[in-house]
């Protein structure tokens, strides 16, 4: 198993933490993993992205030209990364505020109305976890149980009371993909 994933959106949408939770889940699942963020001022606005590679084998480059899976949270990132999904790959995106939908037909394009679901749940901070759930439904690289254990490691202890809400959001995301 090897999944080369890009997660991209605005700074503040939880892009880096979504990747981090996935990375900790892989650690819990005894897989090899690299987590390479864009770093610097984009954390405070502008576009942010993170490359997460999960594999059963040692990982060479943490920096990639193309990806098996893309999780896209805004138009700029869609414009940048749609062409860089490998043929046969998966592109998950939230259609909220997307004006030019993906046009590729050689990849599996999955629209996940995560913003709508977030509003319905009344949990603004659950947004990235809904998309993580969608990712796990399309790419079962790690079991949900490992993700929940990963959450415990990725989140500081003072936020551990939020784990049930996060888990609920992950399951919601999985349902949305069906």
């Amino acid at each position: 198993m090897k999944d080369e994933i890009i997660i991209a959106g605005f700074g503040g949408q939880g892009v880096l933490s979504m990747g981090k939770i996935l990375a900790y889940a892989a650690l819990e699942n005894d897989q090899e993993v690299t987590w390479m963020p864009s770093y610097g001022p984009e954390q405070r606005g502008g576009t942010a992205n993170v490359t997460v590679i999960l594999s059963d084998e040692p990982i060479s480059s943490p920096v990639l030209s193309e990806y098996d899976t893309a999780v896209i949270l805004n138009q700029q990132s869609l414009d940048k990364f749609e062409s860089r999904v490998k043929p046969g790959g998966v592109l998950i995106y939230d259609p909220y505020d997307i004006h030019h939908a993906p046009t590729r037909t050689d990849i599996d394009v999955v629209a996940v109305p995560a913003m709508e679901a977030t509003i319905a749940m009344g949990q603004a901070k659950a947004y990235n976890m809904i998309l993580l759930g969608a990712l796990l439904a399309k790419r079962p690289d790690v079991p949900v149980e490992a993700v929940v254990r990963g959450l415990k490691k990725a989140l500081p202890e003072r936020h551990h009371h939020l784990i049930p809400v996060n888990e609920q959001a992950i399951r919601k995301g999985m349902e949305l993909v069906g």
Partner: peptide
């Protein structure tokens, strides 16, 4: 370099 400094791995 910034890549090895900023990336996370095992």
């Amino acid at each position: 370099d910034g890549v090895v400094g900023q990336m996370m791995e095992k």
